[in-house]
């Protein structure tokens, strides 16, 4: 569905040097990205600010010409075939609107039907579906300018899907939303992803979005892909470990040691163990329970934030 090879985008940046002289310098925002996304896949595209996420998205949607490399989206070359591509993709920008500010939401949807030339019955069917899933019914007669951000974002999602795009690009769709609105958006996207007929490309800084929605993560930094795989692969590659935190009633008579288990810290009666290389918590818990009376016990999954923060920090210093 999407294929890029050696995708590169350079910008010329000019900076003031001395009183009159300006120095021009070429900066590669995207520096050789190879990507292959299959139909129905949901892909999380992550990276720190300035990593080249939005530039990639703009090249994939045909609003930015690559400096070098090859792109194919839905079998089309985005920039020269932008108009044809526009009928086959949908784009949601968290910080921009594609709705008509001064018209009721319903009118925006109706206009989009004409713009994308969707037959009326098909449009009505898809709209009814989105209205139900996103609870848009009461909002349809409301002018867009009177909608809250969360309500508007539900409208934006609907607007992007009414012409049944094959690929939906989402650029930070949950930015600025409250918890309830975020959940509504994620729930909707989860259902859409499960159906498998729409490829979803999601850029976000909200890692909860990624954990809920995307099996595959592509992390970019300085315009290059630094990880392409699942969250689990990311954890194992960068040494993230699950932890067992146990609160005891009494100190252990002798330390519990097991292969693949390392004691991370001991603070009074609280012990924290790391599980190395995919070791299960079961054996450790059984040994602990046999050795002492347990007050409380928790198995803590590694936080994706931590590993990604480590990855970004490494990129910044490296």
């Amino acid at each position: 569905m999407i294929e890029t090879a050696g995708l590169r985008k350079e910008f010329v940046v000019s900076a003031k040097v001395g009183k009159l002289r300006r120095e021009r310098r070429v900066v590669a925002a995207v520096d050789g990205i190879d990507l292959r996304v299959e139909r129905g896949e949901t892909l999380g595209y992550l990276g720190p600010n300035g990593a080249g996420k939005s530039t990639t998205l703009k090249m994939l949607t045909g609003v930015l010409t690559p400096t070098a490399g090859r792109i194919s989206v839905c079998g089309l070359t985005p920039v020269p075939q932008r108009t044809q591509l526009a009928r086959r993709i949908g784009v949601v920008f968290g910080q921009r609107s594609q709705l008509w500010w001064d018209l009721p939401l319903r009118d925006s949807f109706d206009l989009l039907r004409h713009i994308y030339r969707v037959p009326a019955p098909e449009h009505a069917g898809r709209l009814a579906e989105c209205v139900e899933l996103l609870d848009l019914g009461p909002l349809l007669p409301v002018p867009v300018r009177q909608l809250s951000l969360g309500q508007r974002m539900r409208g934006e999602l609907t607007a992007a899907l009414l012409h049944r795009p094959e690929v939906l690009f989402l650029d930070e769709p949950t930015i600025g939303l409250d918890v309830v609105s975020k959940q509504a958006v994620r729930e909707f996207l989860t259902q859409l992803g499960r159906r498998g007929d729409t490829t979803l490309i999601l850029t976000t800084h909200d890692l909860a979005d990624i954990e809920r929605l995307c099996r595959r993560l592509v992390i970019v930094d300085h315009g290059r892909v630094v990880h392409d795989g699942t969250a689990e692969e990311l954890h194992s590659r960068y040494g993230s470990r699950r932890r067992v935190v146990v609160d005891l009633d009494e100190p252990l008579a002798e330390p519990v040691t097991l292969p693949g288990v390392a004691l991370e810290s001991a603070e009074g009666l609280r012990l924290t163990y790391q599980l190395v290389d995919g070791t299960n918590a079961g054996a450790l818990v059984a040994r602990l329970a046999a050795a002492a009376s347990l007050r409380d016990l928790a198995v803590v999954e590694p936080a994706i934030e931590d590993v990604i923060a480590r990855l970004y920090a490494r990129g910044a210093t490296g």
């Binding site: 001064d102 018209l103 009118d107 206009l111 030339r117 094959e166």
Partner: peptide, 26 residues
């Protein structure tokens, strides 16, 4: 993908829909 019908009359309808939206907006 939607079964998009093509041709001049449809384009004309798109134009009219946009004109009508412009009227309502103002």
């Amino acid at each position: 993908m939607a079964n998009h019908s093509a041709g001049a009359p449809v384009r004309y309808r798109t134009f009219i829909a946009l004109v009508s939206a412009g009227f309502r907006r103002y």
